[in-house]
Amino acid sequence: MSGLNIGVLAVQGDVAENIMATKMAMEELGIEGIVNEIKNPEQISDLDGLIIPGGESTVIGTLSLVNGSLKKIKEKIASGMPVFGICAGLILLSKKAKDRVVGEMDQPLLDFLDVKIERNAFGRQRDSFESEISMEKIGVPKFPGVFIRAPSIIETGRNVEIISKFNEKIIAVKQEKILGTSFHPELTDDLSLHKYFVNLVKEKN
């Protein structure tokens, strides 16, 4: 094994920011490897880890379904590949999602993370906010939380570990090698979460 191969699903959303954060995290950890945009399903089979970035979950889901990526990603996660879903990515990893205003959704989901999501749980863009949060469980006592039209987790299954809450709302979870946050670590200078994910990928390999 020459180095890790981490991909960022590049259908729509803030792909470049996650590539940059992951590269910097690997450099700081002194871990060798590559980080690439994942544009087609053929690239998925070689991955050691995948980040599904922020964006619009309906768009990323629908287009990944169209080009066959969704099926490939499912197979890889089932075989144990670590995956990190951010905001829209968290929604895509979940089993069930509803919108705060529109209600139950019928959108393509990966159906792995045993949680129910409420989309736009904190309101619309004007209600988007920054706040310091804490993830003691993974050794990150302070973290700059950037919440943009963020979802929250309203139900968790037995195997789901709650990593962080904000004012009683669940905002970060882990289920085995699946990590999900409703906020955007890639929009901050703090690499703690990307480092945590890179280490998850390394442990697996």
């Binding site: 590049a10 959303g13 964006g55 905001c87 950037v146």
Partner: peptide
Amino acid sequence: STLKRGFAHMLKNG
């Protein structure tokens, strides 16, 4: 600015 510009970042490639 992070929230305003960040919102636009989420629209990229859309």
